Simulated assay, not measured.
Amino acid sequence: MWGFKSYTDEFYILEIQKENMKVINHFHTYCRDYFRKTYKKLFQEENLEDDFFQESFVKLWKEIRRCSIFVQNNQIYKRNAAGEINLLKCSLRTYLIDITKNDYNQYLRKKEVSARDMKQLLNSKMSEADVTTHTEDLKSKIVSECVKNLPDSCYKIISLFYYEQKNYDEIMEMSDNYTSKDALKTRKYKCMEQLQKRIEEKFNMYNLKPYLHERGNFK
């Protein structure tokens, strides 16, 4: 039986580089359970924490796979974007959670900017003749902002599928985050549910009629 406290970060890194799925899944569960227990209350919106954690885990996995994080002489090093190599001064779990928190803070900052822009649009003076145009502009802006403020993985899927008109096979070729077309379809479905919920909440806030979406309708 796997014991969560029995493995060193050096062991995790070496086994992840070997694509040992048993170890990868073990490390994922170990970090995810701690994250849920410790940081769930930080998230203002329900069910977002797992999305952000999963995206951060993929980022860490990629860093280890391309040896940006590696083990040498029983020490863990990190190579930054400039190619400089330094000791990793925290545990892998702490590093992963820092990525998650930083991504979420960026998401919150984007939401704050979007809210200010929306308020300015609502408070702008306009004539009666501009009401219809204003309403459609507001709807389009809400949809656009809701898409932009999705977690990165959802934003990429929806952008590729709706904006760039890519099919599932093309998206699979452009991403290594999905093991099958069914997994991608499931993820897209969940992303669309999340997006629709956000759009409906915003529309209700501004007393707008429902927005009927079809492929290619996000502009």
Results as ranks from 00 to 15, higher is better:
Asn73Trp: 06
Ser91Gly: 07
Lys111Gly: 09
Gln106Leu: 15
Tyr77Thr: 07
Ile99Asn: 07
Asn73Thr: 07
Asn74Pro: 07
Ala115Phe: 13
Ala82Trp: 11
Cys67Met: 11
Val113Ser: 03
Gly83Met: 12
Thr94Pro: 03
Ile85Phe: 06
Gln72Trp: 11
Ala115Tyr: 14
Glu84Gly: 12
Arg93Trp: 00
Met118Ile: 10
Glu112Pro: 02
Cys90Arg: 12
Lys101Tyr: 05
Lys101Glu: 08
Ala81Gly: 10
Tyr104Pro: 02
Tyr107Glu: 01
Phe57Met: 02
Lys62Ile: 09
Asn73Cys: 07
Gln106Cys: 13
Lys89Ile: 01
Val113Gln: 04
Tyr107Gly: 01
Glu84Pro: 02
Lys78Tyr: 06
Glu63Asn: 05
Ile97Arg: 00
Arg65His: 10
Lys101His: 09
Ile97Asp: 00
Lys111Ala: 09
Ile64His: 05
Tyr77Asn: 03
Lys110Gln: 08
Arg109Lys: 15
Ala115Glu: 15
Arg93Ala: 03
Leu92Gly: 00
Asn102Cys: 04
Ala81Phe: 11
Arg65Glu: 11
Val58Arg: 05
Phe57Pro: 02
Ser114Ala: 11
Thr94Tyr: 01
Ile85Thr: 15
Ala115Leu: 11
Arg93Thr: 08
Lys110Arg: 14
Arg116Gly: 03
Ile64Trp: 06
Arg93Val: 04
Asp103Val: 05
Arg65Leu: 15
Ile64Asn: 01
Val71Phe: 03
